[in-house]
Design a binder for these strands. Sequence first.
DNA 1: GCCATTTCGATACTCCCGTTGCGTAAGTCC
DNA 2: GGACTTACGCAACGGGAGTATCGAAATGGC
Lengths: 209, 209
Amino acid sequence: MTTEARRGRPRAEGADARILDAAYEVLVDRGYDRYSIDEVAQRAGVAKTTVYRRWPTRDHLIVAVVAKIQDEVPVTDTGDIRHDLVTYLEAIVAGLDRMRRVGRAMEPGDRSAGLVAEIVAAAARHTDVGGALRGLFARRNALPLALLASARARGDLKPDAQPGVIFDELAGAIYYRLLITGEPIDGDYASRLVDQVLAGARTPHEEGT
Amino acid sequence: MTTEARRGRPRAEGADARILDAAYEVLVDRGYDRYSIDEVAQRAGVAKTTVYRRWPTRDHLIVAVVAKIQDEVPVTDTGDIRHDLVTYLEAIVAGLDRMRRVGRAMEPGDRSAGLVAEIVAAAARHTDVGGALRGLFARRNALPLALLASARARGDLKPDAQPGVIFDELAGAIYYRLLITGEPIDGDYASRLVDQVLAGARTPHEEGT
DNA sequence: GCCATTTCGATACTCCCGTTGCGTAAGTCC
DNA sequence: GGACTTACGCAACGGGAGTATCGAAATGGC
């Protein structure tokens, strides 16, 4: 469908890729705030208008770059729901920590969410970017949600456990620390999250109401 | 300490307030993206340099405006931890929903986090803004954390329940939906979050490991 | 071959951020 | 009163986002 022969002059072959590569370079070299379309175009050997013909704003281009370098988060299903969840969350944490540092020399105590926050803002500014990102997350979260559902199906979780809510709480706590409170996410944070959710907070003898 | 007689010409009386008011107006009228310092200065009847002498970037001014209109989130301690948590979270949800709409005409199905995401990005861009915001959240979250701690002290929560982790999960889930997945936060979402955390997910007979 | 269509590079433009320089106003210090 | 210090308004500037316009180039349709 994309291959269907169009009328006028065809788009320059490989220009998309060269622009994306150049954008990534500039993003790494200069950081988000000093990243400019002019420099991307120059490095890609392309006019600025050619860039804007493909990505309407600088935000769109950045999100395209990030989506491209975004690696898959592997999901293991060992039958041990606690272990699988911890593994998954730790992969998320590692990925986020890598992304927040892109193009930024972070001091040891730096708690900035960096590029992650910029992506979130870009999603909020442009409805199409937001939609694309939400689709990406929906696809990505399908696996851990299935993991929870199957754990419930085989009786490892209570029948009334809600995978959607549980996953929001686990992933949400991580993003909350990163984006809002800035509290450090140490090595055992993921396992503490999982343990808390699985065990519950209320004292046993009060269950039932 | 702020009243101590300084040397040179004193700052124009009330200029701060006029600028903040003007900034709020512009923010509401134009929205975040079309909000410009030039217009703020003009509406406040002040030179642009006077604005920049007080707030070094447009982000700083916006955060100052938001911090000013940010109302307190009331914490009730009725002794019913479930009820108190749900009440608190619903107040958070209402506040966030108000803030995300500032200066933006939202279509019914619009899931954009709006101004909330911009504040998060501003915090990530400027270390001082980030620090101030983190301090604000630390102060604000102290009350619900105390609520959880006292519930644990009187035996309503398990001795090994971790208030910090629990609160991250509750608040985090809300911010996660708002900023990341864009899933709607319906009326009973807060209570579902609280119930899930309090009850726990694991089947009772498997507790203990 | 010729035309319509689309992309290309190049240039100029508008808008806004944030900075700088300058002359002036309004205070303090002595 | 005079020196000093700081804030003020005004104007100009550099830089980047995004738009508009132009002639040239590359394709399909006929």
